[in-house]
Amino acid sequence: MGDDINGLHHVGHIVRDMDQAMERYRQLGFAVPAPAYPVLPAVGGGPAEPFGVANTHVHFPGNFVELVTVIDDTGRMPGEARPIPLQVPDDKLPGLMAAIRATAANITSFLQRFQGVHIMIADTPDIDSVAARLTAVGVSHGGVHNIQRPVETSTGTRMEPARYLEISDPQLPPGRVPEGRIGFAENTPVEAPQDQRHTDHPNGATGLVECVLCVADTALPELEQRYSTYFGQARDGKVTRFDRASVTVVAASALADLLPGERPAPLPAFVAYAVSVRDIAATERLLRDNDVPVTRTGPEEMFVPADAALGVAIIFRQDG
């Protein structure tokens, strides 16, 4: 179990203000491309309008951090935003609108809990195998979805196929579990490398390497059992690590040992994620030069507190 997982595909950082989030991430030393937002007619033959959510990706060679915000009723978009027209037959339009509304409603409900990371998607080379494995052990999920997503390349933005699966809690709306949205995604073999401009980060970041979930102490045994079903065998210690998925689970009472000074958000919650960097000393100099607070947790690791990173602690860890 869990042999069909290759680590993290992405985490989703839900923000209230995309302009503010892009500015903060650039201050943290990440290259952040212009966000994209879907436009489509509300009725067949009508004018195309912004709808749903806007997002952008902090790209790494094998995964990414997604910044997500909800498009409000005014349709106001960040200044750099790029419209992505969605082409859909008139008879399919109501179904697509309903699906996008459901996604936006979930994002809105997450943001009402707190601004921060609410999405964690594991990478798999065989999503059909994952779906069959979860079904066999009684895990509720929404099945494999085939979609088109915008991919930015050196020659512009193009739409490429993607496949994903979301785990569901029968007591919650579709695509939801108590800690947010978790699932699996399959990288399509036809994907071209991302534009090098967006994977060469001033802070030296080279990849997304960990996501940290904090739960109440009393909820830890149930969560460990549930995640073992999703991701395979865990490695126990003061915290529980699901190595294949690059997920760490920590009880609230132990969070201060892992991330000194951090206070749990409403639990359960994804409280941090980690990126690897080429040179931890150079990364620290850049952050301090940009007046970003950092806390050292070892000679090869430090983190930016959640208060300074829009609701999630960002860990920087020496690569290798």
Rank of each mutant, 00 (worst) to 15 (best):
I107S: 08
F114M: 07
L86I: 13
P125G: 12
S109C: 09
L93D: 00
A99Q: 10
I100A: 01
T108N: 11
R113N: 10
R113K: 14
Q87V: 11
P125W: 11
D126V: 07
A98D: 15
Q112R: 15
V88L: 07
V88G: 00
Q87C: 12
L96A: 02
D123A: 15
D90T: 15
A99L: 09
M120G: 12
K92C: 11
A122R: 08
K92D: 15
Q87M: 11
I119F: 01
I100K: 04
I100H: 05
D123L: 14
A104K: 04
P89K: 03
A104G: 03
D126H: 08
Q112F: 06
P94A: 04
R101P: 03
A105I: 10
I119P: 00
P125Y: 12
Q87I: 10
G95E: 11
A105D: 14
N106M: 14
I121T: 09
A104N: 01
G116Q: 03
G95S: 10
K92V: 09
A98F: 09
P125D: 11
A105S: 13
G116P: 02
S109E: 12
A104R: 05
H118D: 02
A102C: 05
A122T: 09
M97E: 06
D126L: 07
D90E: 12
L93K: 02
D123N: 14
A99F: 07
D123R: 05
L96E: 01
Q115E: 13
N106V: 09
P94M: 01
T124R: 02
V117T: 09
A104W: 03
P125I: 11
M97C: 14
S109N: 15
F114Q: 07
A102L: 08
G116V: 05
N106L: 12
N106F: 10
G95A: 14
L93G: 02
A122Y: 04
P89M: 03
I119K: 02
R113Q: 13
H118A: 04
A104T: 05
P94Q: 01
L96Y: 01
A122W: 01
L86W: 11
I100D: 02
